[in-house]
Amino acid sequence: MLITGIKSRPVYDRLTPFPEALLHLVVGQGSGGTAMSRLIAEIAPGADIEVMYSTESFTGQNHLAALKDAAPGRFDWFASNAALSQALHDRLSQAFMGTRLYLAGSESFIGLAMKVARQFDLNADEVLREHCGSLVRRVWCVHCDTYSENITQRVFSCSGCGKPLVVRDHYSRLMGAFMGVQGDAEVPGELPEASELDT
């Protein structure tokens, strides 16, 4: 059932400005702050830039003060990734063609934000994603539709339904997470060996 190599895991980018953009929307979380500041400095002066930042972080990185200084225009910050993702949805629903989106942060955060971006049919030529920080996994339970964050173990208990899930090496772009499947569905109680994930 488990596949090695993880072909489906996204290949991330390095944030660089889209020169043709009418609006640069720079969005990130936690340790993504450094990539955001670097990008903002590279965007041509006078361009329309808006920054959204979430201080939620697994590793405790906080770049709020530095970003506030770097952002030339509108700046909004949020205490959680969930609040930021709701605000991103609201902002994109008011945005026009010509907008470019830049995402920086953990894989969990990027998966969450990409799910929003996909609702607006944003493609690879309009979104760049830079991964920052640890590669702990975001896992989506195929049984109860709950996301569990920051998973480091191959077998864990789903934060939604409590089923013992095995984390597959299959990253779903649609769900923006790795797939978690009940590990003992065939023989109750018989689970794969506990092991550290290749994060």
Binding site: L22, M97, G98, T99, N123, A124, D125
Partner: peptide
């Protein structure tokens, strides 16, 4: 379209 910032995929 290009001048108005439309990306090729649209």
């Amino acid at each position: 379209a290009r001048a108005l910032g439309w990306s090729n995929s649209h």
